[in-house]
Write a protein that binds this DNA or RNA. Structure first.
Lengths: 226, 226
DNA sequence: ACAGCTTCTCAGCATATTCTCAGACGTCTG
DNA sequence: CAGACGTCTGAGAATATGCTGAGAAGCTGT
């Protein structure tokens, strides 16, 4: 899951970035409005956290511009206390949720999770494929009743695959969503991580169907079908 | 599917080319307006991606020139931010869609797919002939309920045939659309690949009608009729 | 500082794919 | 029925793609 944070106060931006990274999100930061707009336009994020007060171009204009470009990434706007009209204007401009500064990080996190969850199906925070379940709130991964320990990256990869179950995802798509924008990892790294996941998710459960499939020449997918 | 990209910034052009090739498109690049016009006039593309700002000859003129030559290839224009009049002028000059820079590759891809799909029918991303279905989003190919595994090239060939179902396509047309412009493969290669497809699509389904037909002296077509 | 874990790259292997070639096969024409 | 032409197909070489063990580098907690 990739998140873009557009916030000119470096300290706030960095602390949000750090907090979100601990929650296994891939986070990019933009410190000006135009940088934010460019990134949000060119990259494919799952959520954009957008401060209203920004140099060069304010949050509202970014919102409008993105929506007019037909980009529907969920947007969470941050407003200063007392700037009620900003909140209203922001929602009118196409934002999906708002938070007034100062805020507790947990509050931000909860709203981001809600936004990520929204357009998809799935029972609450649980992603399910066959007898494999992933709880995105508690990071609990289980198959056939037994718990599975995953590293951060493994979890991020599995979550991305599960949110698009039965869809074939190219290595490039995976790199863009599971790693950071500037991460620049090799396609082989994806192969390696797919291998790690298989070792934990498929190999120990030989009586069950394999869930992670390679579609040679195209990419990978998770699902019960071939 | 063949796409021409006319863009003078080498970096952008190359990244678009690379991305589209991963999506199984055959891509040619022109770095100047005149080269772009020449290629678009002489070769047969499914979509032209056209930057407005170009050396030698701007995008608008290319658009007009092509349309006046009675070439109706869908054109997607790329404009710099803020050059709103360019977009309007471009559409007036005969372009079919536009995108403002910077843009997300996925956005470009979606629009290209929309342009390719437009004149045809088909339910969304699904191509259907008789009981054979091809899902161009998930790369899922099914006949009579059973899944079929295809390689990259086989898939590209089948997709091209299906998008022009009931039309007879010459080997040359197939080479130009499924392989790269400069690929230079023998006509026999097409015969071989048609054979591969038959082995997977027709042979295992003997109770069903054959869908891939050879029209001796002309080429091949896919469809329910002979 | 150290052990243990995670992240990522690399090199080598195994396998699939791409493409060509040569000969077989079929069909049309005289 | 023979010859010419177009198409089909099995074999195989070259290349691409994916998998894996090993290991370097970084981070974390003690």
């Amino acid at each position: 899951m990739r998140i873009l944070v557009v916030e000119d106060e470096h300290k706030i931006a960095q602390s949000i970035k750090k907090g979100l990274e601990q929650e296994r999100y891939a986070v990019d930061v933009a410190y000006t409005g135009t940088d934010g707009l460019d990134l949000a336009s060119t990259e494919d994020y799952d959520v954009v956290v957008l401060d209203m007060m920004l140099p060069e171009m304010d949050g509202m204009s970014i919102c409008k511009e993105l929506r007019s470009k037909n980009i529907h990434t969920p947007i969470l706007i941050l407003t200063a206390r007392g700037q009620l009209h900003e909140k209203v204007d922001g929602l009118n401009a196409g934002a999906d949720d708002y938070l007034t500064k100062p805020f507790a990080f947990e509050e931000l996190l909860a709203r981001i999770k809600a936004l990520i969850r929204r357009p998809h199906q799935t029972t609450g925070a649980n992603l399910v494929v066959d007898n494999l379940t992933v709880d995105t709130l508690t990071y609990n991964v289980e198959r056939d009743g037994t718990q599975i320990q995953l590293s951060h990256k493994e979890f991020a990869l599995l979550e991305y695959l599960m949110r698009h179950q039965e869809h074939v995802l190219t290595k490039d798509q995976i790199i863009h969503h599971v790693w950071n924008y500037d991460a620049d990892v090799l396609p082989n790294t994806v192969e390696v991580y797919i291998g790690y996941l298989r070792n934990k998710v498929d190999k120990p459960f030989k009586e069950n169907k394999k869930l992670i499939h390679t579609i040679r020449g195209f990419g990978y997918k998770i699902g019960v079908n071939i």
